[in-house]
């Protein structure tokens, strides 16, 4: 039987989908039965998602926000002067 400590050690590989099959099954059995690991993993995943959703490059698409021309002018001027 895996311990919570083992689960911790395998967690990133589990999330990457790279755990060997037999290990993954043992991991999942532990998590299904463990009232401590389930909330832990839910929060661990959520923390990763929060960082990703806040900081990742937005998908390409038509720019929906108006770009202030003054800002572009200021940037071009500062580059000119640099």
């Amino acid at each position: 039987m895996m311990t919570c400590k083992d689960v911790e050690r395998f967690l990133d590989d589990y999330l990457d989908g790279s755990l060997p099959f037999a290990t993954r099954i043992r991991f999942e059995i532990h998590v299904r039965m463990c009232a401590e690991c389930r909330p832990y993993i839910a929060r661990y995943r959520r923390a990763i998602e929060l960082g990703h959703k806040l900081l990742a490059e937005p998908p390409e698409g038509p720019a929906s926000e108006a770009v202030p021309q003054e800002l572009i002018d200021v940037i071009l001027k500062s580059i000119d002067e640099s």
Binding site: T3, C4, K5, V7, E8, C34, E36, Y40
Partner: peptide, 10 residues
């Protein structure tokens, strides 16, 4: 974790 490797989680 405690001495048996069990997690201590809020």
């Amino acid at each position: 974790f405690d001495e048996r490797g069990c997690r201590v989680e809020s």
